[in-house]
Write a protein that binds this DNA or RNA. Structure first.
Lengths: 134, 134
DNA sequence: GTAGACATTCCAGTCGGCTGGAAGATCGGG
DNA sequence: CCCGATCTTCCAGCCGACTGGAATGTCTAC
């Protein structure tokens, strides 16, 4: 199968496929006599795996490290497991930070509605936000 | 005050100050006879405002839009309020997405521990993640 | 034989928020 | 008078994950 079909089957663009190959995420495929990339069904599987892994929030670099370990013959999922664990921690931190930001923002938004607009005249700041600086 | 002092007072680098000026976030200051930037205390205030606004999660572009409206003589905080409201919605969506990702990831992490490592031999994928693709 | 739908390579650009470094001017202290 | 800190400008690069486009080659159908 040529690159266009692979792309269609996996829901990415041909650009993305070549990009993944360029960063070592996909192996270089066979070539037809005329130089076109010629993929087998394993490529579909592997590319789907990349997208699935990406959907779980792993970076392409992390996915590459999983695939490299696999390619090196590792039969253990412990690397993946460790990666997932660490990512889980990251995610929790990120969520906590966003929650905090959300709370801060909600306070400001409320204040914005309540404030007297005519008292907000300083061209260098906005009292809505300035009032949060304390 | 020169750029270094302004930077120190506001906790940013001189690089950042010049960058903010270059994108129109800070007005061009007076210059000394020798060409050095010469700031007044308003600049400190304005730069602090930028950092405060940034801390609430607004992008520099959004902050610029608030400042522009102010500069244009708007005495209403409604633009800021609208901006905050929209940002609040964005934030909620982002949090929801992260929560979903976290749940998905937690399932995978659990599975990674439970799976039989010796059955994970396909070099193109990892059963931990492959099992989530359904 | 020709249109147009695919493929190839390579280089550059996007987003946001800076950061690094070179080459030169200027300032303050000993 | 010189050292070193600070300032100036400008250009380039970083992160991640692509995306756009030019110039060119190839395949398929009519």
């Amino acid at each position: 199968m040529k690159i266009g079909e692979l792309a269609d089957r996996t829901g990415v663009t041909t650009k993305t496929v070549r990009y993944y190959e360029s960063i070592g995420l996909l192996a270089e495929p066979e070539r037809t006599a005329s130089g076109y990339r010629d993929y087998d069904t394993d490529a579909v599987e592997r590319l789907c795996f990349v997208r699935d892994a990406q959907a779980t929030g792993l970076s392409l670099a992390e996915i590459a490290s999983v695939l490299e370990l696999k390619a090196a013959g590792s039969t253990s999922c412990s690397h993946t497991a460790a990666l997932l664990e660490r990512h889980l921690v990251d995610l929790d931190e990120q969520i906590a930070r966003l929650h905090q930001a959300r709370e801060d923002l909600a306070v400001l938004a409320e204040r914005a509605v309540a404030l007297d607009p005519s008292s907000c005249t300083d061209p260098n700041r906005c009292q809505v936000i300035a009032s949060a600086a304390g």
